[in-house]
Computed example of a mutant assay.
Amino acid sequence: MTTESQRFTVLLVPEYVENKDTASAQDVAVRSAVVEATGETGETGYPRYAGDGIVADIDPRTRTVEALLVDGAELDYGLSALVAS
C-alpha cells in the first residue's frame, strides 16, 4: 500500500509575491490545475503527476514541485509552482 498522495493542486504564481503562504498564493495564482498520479517516475526520481495541461514531478513527502511542464513547455520566467494545501 502506498502512502503517497494521488492528487495535488498545483498553483502557478508570480515569483515576486511576498509571503507565499497557501492562502495568498491561491489569491494571486495565474493558473491552477489538479494533477493526478500517473504511476510513472519522472526524470527527477519523484512520482509524476498530470492534469489540466500540467505535468509535474512532485515530492509527495515535502510537497515540492521538482520539475514542471505547462502545456508541453517549461515554466515562463517570473513564475513559480507551488502545491496548495
Rank of each mutant, 00 (worst) to 15 (best):
G51E: 08
E18T: 05
F8D: 00
V55Q: 14
G39Y: 01
V30I: 11
S32R: 13
R31S: 04
Y46P: 03
A67M: 11
T64V: 14
S5N: 10
V10D: 02
L68A: 06
G45Q: 03
V83I: 15
T62F: 11
T3C: 09
V65D: 10
S80Y: 11
V13P: 01
D57I: 14
K20D: 05
V65T: 08
G53K: 09
Y46A: 10
Y49I: 03
E66D: 13
T64H: 12
T41I: 06
E43M: 01
D21I: 09
E43T: 11
A25V: 10
M1G: 15
A73E: 14
V83Y: 07
D52W: 09
T64N: 07
T62H: 12
E36I: 00
I54Y: 11
T9K: 12
T62K: 13
G45E: 05
V35R: 00
A56P: 09
L12Q: 01
V70N: 02
T44D: 02
D27A: 13
L69H: 12
E15K: 11
V83L: 10
E36W: 00
V83W: 09
G78W: 05
D52V: 08
D76A: 15
S5L: 12
R48L: 15
L79P: 04
T2A: 12
D76V: 04
E43G: 14
V17C: 03
S85P: 14
A25C: 08
T38S: 00
P47F: 08
V35G: 00
V34D: 03
S32M: 06
D57K: 10
R61H: 15
A81I: 07
D57H: 13
G53T: 13
M1F: 15
R63T: 11
D27R: 14
R7E: 12
E66A: 14
E4G: 10
Y46K: 03
G72Q: 13
D71S: 04
S80L: 10
A29W: 01
T3E: 15
A81V: 08
A25K: 06
L68T: 09
L79Y: 13
A50L: 03
E4I: 08
R48H: 08
R61Y: 15
V17T: 07
E15I: 02
R31C: 00
D21C: 08
E15L: 03
T41D: 02
L69Y: 13
G45W: 04
M1V: 14
G72C: 01
G39H: 01
A33L: 01
D57W: 10
L11S: 04
M1S: 15
R61T: 15
T22L: 01
V65A: 02
T2V: 15
T2Y: 10
F8S: 03
D52N: 15
P47S: 08
V65R: 14
S32H: 09
A73F: 06
T3G: 14
Q26F: 02
Y77W: 06
G78S: 05
E36Y: 08
P47N: 12
A29L: 06
A33N: 02
D27T: 14
G39Q: 04
S80W: 05
P60C: 12
T2L: 06
V13D: 01
A29Q: 12
T3P: 00
L79T: 04
T41W: 01
T3W: 11
Y77N: 13
E40S: 03
A29D: 00
L68K: 06
D57C: 09
V70A: 04
G51N: 11
